[in-house]
């Protein structure tokens, strides 16, 4: 029973080994290569890393749920951008004028609702048409991006609300707002996936869909709920991030789906569904951010980061395959 040995090992902590290895490597290499005198494993630096992980990390938690369920969502980057625009734009709508800072929760609510609805729409289409989630979300990735442009054409949408900026830049117990959101979301999805009936059913559906159907689990609603959750989280990620920056370009969030999927796969989630957990994904998110920062620390540029991350993703897949070869007796098909 060695099936998925590496993904299992990754899920069970190998990703943390990888993170520690990176920390050691970058600390040591930084001594010789880094231009700055600051140590890599500086506490400030690590806290910043956690904060910078938040946008991708929050979405990655939702992606873990969707992929464990046996689907995939390529439209998260576009949903991210839509939610950002809805939040920033709605604060300037005349009907909300005169609310003062009371507009903030309304803008958040509108943005989160938009994300949830768009996610649920993906789920509904997957459920009712039976078209593969890959194609459905590939389509909506284009479609949702089109909606983004409808707001302001190719111009950025900006609105700075200083109360909001203060909130986003606040720190509580030493952690930035974004970091808190990442931790809270991680906990919430961990709870959902390990403790609730819905979460366990999501695993069962991804693992053996026919068995789940025969056991009377309603596959469609479960999938739709999970898509709604990832839509919500994409919006939450946007809301947290743009509260601070206050300006969104219509192309923002592009390629987010790729980063998110990379983090999830690195974290040990099986691409075919049924296996994976958010703790591993959390590790995957941190590992990627660490790699970005670490390579920057030793003077490598973004190009090296892209190269290294791509190759690591392939290497993980390769190792998993090698450990699963059953030996010479295996049927050569």
């Amino acid at each position: 029973m060695k099936s998925g040995a590496v993904s299992k090992a990754l899920a069970n902590g190998a990703i943390w080994g990888f993170i520690i290895l990176q920390l050691i490597f970058f600390s040591v290499a930084g001594e010789y290569l880094s231009l700055s005198d600051k140590a890599f494993m500086d506490w400030e630096n690590m806290l910043l890393l956690l904060k910078q992980s938040a946008p991708i990390g929050i979405i990655a938690m939702g992606m873990t749920l969707v992929m464990v369920n046996g689907n995939i969502d390529l439209s998260v980057g576009a949903t991210f951008a839509i939610a950002a625009i809805v939040m920033l734009d709605s604060m300037t709508w005349p009907i909300f004028a005169g609310l003062g800072d009371g507009v903030i929760p309304i803008a958040w609510l509108l943005a989160l609702t938009a994300g949830t609805v768009l996610g649920a729409l993906n789920g509904l289409i997957v459920w009712k048409t039976g078209v593969d989630a890959f194609i459905v979300t590939l389509g909506s990735m284009l479609g949702y991006r089109g909606i983004v442009f409808m707001f302001n054409g190719e111009n950025p949408t900006s609105h700075l609300n200083w109360t909001l900026v203060d909130f986003a830049e606040a720190e509580f117990l030493g952690l930035a707002t974004a970091s808190w959101f990442l931790l809270l979301v991680t906990f919430a999805i961990w709870f959902l996936m390990t403790k609730t009936v819905h979460g366990r059913n999501a695993y069962a559906i991804g693992d053996n869909r026919e068995a789940a159907v025969n056991a009377g689990i309603r596959v469609g609603p479960h999938m739709m709920i999970n898509f709604a959750i990832i839509g919500f989280l994409a919006a939450l990620s946007a809301v947290v991030f743009y509260s601070e920056s206050g300006s969104v370009n219509p192309n923002d969030g592009q390629l987010y789906e790729l980063w998110v999927i990379t983090a999830v796969v690195l974290g040990g989630t099986k691409i075919t569904g049924g296996a994976g957990n958010v703790i591993g994904t959390f590790g995957g998110v941190i590992a990627i951010q660490l790699l970005r920062k670490g390579l920057g620390h030793i003077g490598a540029d973004t190009s090296t980061v892209n190269l290294v991350i791509g190759l690591i993703l392939i290497a993980v897949l390769f190792l998993d395959r090698q450990l699963n070869v059953k030996g010479k007796e295996e049927l050569k098909v």
Binding site: T196, A211, G216
Partner: peptide
């Protein structure tokens, strides 16, 4: 499978 016992908040 399909009939996990439930507690509050949809917990197993």
């Amino acid at each position: 499978l399909g009939e996990l016992p439930r507690k509050s908040f949809g917990r197993v």
